[in-house]
Computed example of a mutant assay.
Amino acid sequence: MNSKRAAEIYASKDTIAVQLDGEPVWIENVDDANGMATVQVGAKPTNTKTVSVERLTEH
């Protein structure tokens, strides 16, 4: 995925399935300048990771 698409998903009112290494995640923030995204892994709001948007896939 690229930063632009990650930002579009983050801003969308629709629910769009995104995965990180096969695990479902929610995009919490996108840092377009650095190509990074903060994602919530699973159902725990405190379980977040900051990763390259290139690691995210849309399903």
Rank of each mutant, 00 (worst) to 15 (best):
I27K: 01
V53R: 05
H59R: 07
I9L: 04
T48E: 12
A11H: 06
A7G: 00
V53H: 05
M1D: 08
E23K: 08
S12P: 12
R55K: 10
D14Y: 04
G35A: 09
A11N: 08
P24M: 03
Q19P: 00
A33D: 15
D21C: 02
K44D: 15
Y10A: 07
E28S: 03
L20K: 06
D14R: 12
T15W: 10
A7M: 13
Q40T: 14
R55G: 00
T46N: 15
G22F: 09
E54Y: 07
A7R: 13
L20R: 07
N47A: 14
A6E: 02
H59N: 05
I9D: 00
T50Q: 15
A7W: 02
T38I: 14
E23R: 13
S12C: 08
R5V: 14
D32E: 14
S12N: 08
I16P: 03
D32C: 05
I27W: 01
K49D: 07
V30R: 00
V53F: 06
T15G: 06
S12Y: 03
N29T: 09
E54W: 07
N34Y: 09
P24A: 04
A6S: 07
E58W: 04
M36D: 08
A17D: 14
L56R: 03
R5A: 10
V53K: 04
V30Q: 00
A6I: 07
N2H: 04
A11T: 06
V18H: 01
T48A: 08
I27P: 00
A33P: 01
V30Y: 00
V30S: 00
K44E: 15
T50D: 12
K4C: 03
T50S: 12
K44L: 15
E8D: 12
E28T: 08
H59V: 13
S12M: 10
R5S: 06
